[in-house]
Design a protein around this nucleic acid. Structure first.
Lengths: 340, 340
DNA sequence: GTTAACCAGTTAAACGCTTAACTGATAATT
DNA sequence: AATTATCAGTTAAGCGTTTAACTGGTTAAC
């Protein structure tokens, strides 16, 4: 069996308490004794047992990560990437991340995530939209919360958000810089804050460049920002028979659908129409042409969430900070200068 | 504060031990008492604290997942998918997965993963090739091991492997079924067992169909099965100026590179040359044309690894089982009948 | 009628650690 | 010289469970 603190104490001829104090580098212990005890610790290859520590200190060393089932389906890589970010950063911070999913319409009849009931996490990261009931139930237990990519209507929590507005602005400005002035905007689920913020950025960019906003260039009546709805939107747009030289799709999935439609109609990207997406998913590089897009730093969002959480857990920081993640324009081959 | 077992005992007028025995549904307790205690547990919304349980039972409720840093880089989704599979299944099995990465040339001078030193995991899953030193150091601590997608040269461990041979066979047979008989094989890092098994499958398929093996159709001298080496391989192959009607790339990454080269040379896929990959990565669907490939059930491999581990931890199973994951031919648009 | 089994619990130790409170020695202050 | 501080540890309680060993009562076996 591996050594316990008792073994160290016995071998070093000190009390168990002394060993513990040495481990925590307590000033009460002389440097001589520290040296002696540390040597013994090394000799016995002693390491404090997590559960024992956790029991007495009421600290599990774990952080919970909660996301709804539908947001974490196997085909949806967005929150997966955020989760991986938390894993990366957690290792830096000497924490472990425990993952669980909840039903998106969680209410008091559901049972709480096991790691909360068992008091196995010191704090919880909530990624994406979760039910108000879940939030309130966790709050009741006084477990620190950090939100990622969602912010509950009421309350004042630390949160990590995407700068969607700036992204919409950048994407549109890029097209404008390429001398486009007939720029379409295509979206699904415009009621979602992230999507509508991108739309606001689009409109702001037009405004700043004195390009009139034309509702005919906007297709935002699709239910969900997925590939097939991108396809449909492009169809609707082109059926209007108006001049379009560039399309800003609210995310890459829709952009892929748009591209598919354009190809079928033998419309060349980017020479006939420039196309820009949003998110920067893996698949973009394999596309033909590779998609110009706005990169959302998904992994970094997870990293920031853990940083925020550890600050809170260390009491270094109690006020609720809000972090706005910068987005980045990634120019690939689906956009080009507009030829007059 | 939340209720402890003491609160339950007091309220139900029994001893703490009785409450514990009720929780474990011990036969010694009368059903009357059980009912009473269970009601109290419900009333107080009591849940045993993980760390306390862990301390006395020496069971943390966690399973460790170790992968090398280079295998888990942010751009490499293969092991990420396997890891996600373990997360999915762990929730079913009431475990949590703790992730860590190690340096690929781990030796005794490195310090062991923290969750091992702190005895915070009951078993460890090793994904991909890891150093022999790490394996031996974990074995010394008598922590149950399960391997995924790698098997150490010596020893007899439970393992989850891909049926690469069958995959190579299926891919090649598919091309043969399409009446191809000039089928090239392209690979990087042929010394890797998985790659060479796919190669064996290729050769076996040819053999079974009485198609002579032609070394001129094989390009396996690239160092790594990545996109750019796929590109290079295709270049080398076509420079040989021999008849080629189909290409089997050892993985999708290389296939993407091959496709890129063929496009540049204005060779049409699949009409001029059929192309098949291996792995079924996300990007395939966005390709033009979408890639025919052999699907490797990555998530399922993680699931199986956890199943294996939980069997071992429950002692239901001690002998070292080996699981060969079946692969599946996914026919998309990059392969078609060969026109004579 | 004595002994043995069984039943339905209880008692108490243990898991491995942390930390408040204590101790006994020496040094500093008045 | 008496009191107080400081130092460098030790003692012991406690964190919330589990479980082996015990108990005292009833029933069965011989």
């Amino acid at each position: 069996m591996t050594a316990t603190i008792k073994d160290v104490a016995k071998k070093a001829n000190v009390s168990v308490a002394t060993v513990s104090l040495v481990i925590h580098n307590h000033q009460r212990i002389s440097s001589e004794t520290k040296r002696k005890v540390r040597k013994t610790i090394k000799d016995l290859n002693y390491h404090p047992v997590r559960t024992a520590r956790g029991l007495v200190s009421q600290k599990s060393g774990n952080i919970g990560f909660i996301v709804t089932e539908d947001h974490f389906s196997r085909s949806e890589p967005f929150y997966t990437q955020i989760f991986l970010g938390t894993e990366f950063q957690a290792r830096e911070s000497e924490y472990y991340v425990l993952l669980t999913t909840v039903n998106s319409d969680f209410n008091s009849n559901f049972k709480m995530p096991r790691f909360i009931l068992e008091r196995n996490v010191e704090g919880v990261i909530l990624a994406g939209k979760v039910s108000q009931s879940l939030i309130e139930n966790i709050k009741k237990l006084e477990i620190p919360l950090v939100f990622v990519d969602y912010y509950p209507p009421q309350g004042n929590y630390p949160v990590v958000m995407i700068d969607n507005f700036a992204g919409g602005l950048k994407a549109t400005q890029h097209l404008i810089d390429c001398h486009h002035n007939r720029i379409a905007f295509i979206a699904g689920d415009i009621s979602h804050p992230s999507i509508s913020e991108r739309f606001q950025g689009y409109k702001m960019a037009l405004d700043r460049n004195q390009i009139p906003f034309d509702p005919n260039l906007v297709v935002i009546d699709e239910p969900y920002p997925a590939r097939e709805f991108g396809y449909n939107s492009a169809k609707k747009l082109l059926q209007r028979n108006i001049s379009v030289t560039a399309i800003f799709a609210c995310n890459d999935a829709m952009a892929i659908g748009v591209l598919q439609f354009l190809k079928e109609k033998n419309i060349k990207v980017p020479t006939d129409i420039s196309l820009i997406g949003f998110d920067d998913v893996e698949a973009n590089l394999s596309m033909d042409p590779p998609l110009t897009t706005v990169r959302v730093p998904k992994v970094e969002m997870g990293i920031e969430a853990i940083k925020l959480m550890t600050e809170i857990l260390c009491q270094r920081q109690t006020r609720s900070r809000k972090i706005l993640m910068p987005v980045e324009l990634i120019v690939r081959c689906s956009t080009c200068e507009h030829q007059n």
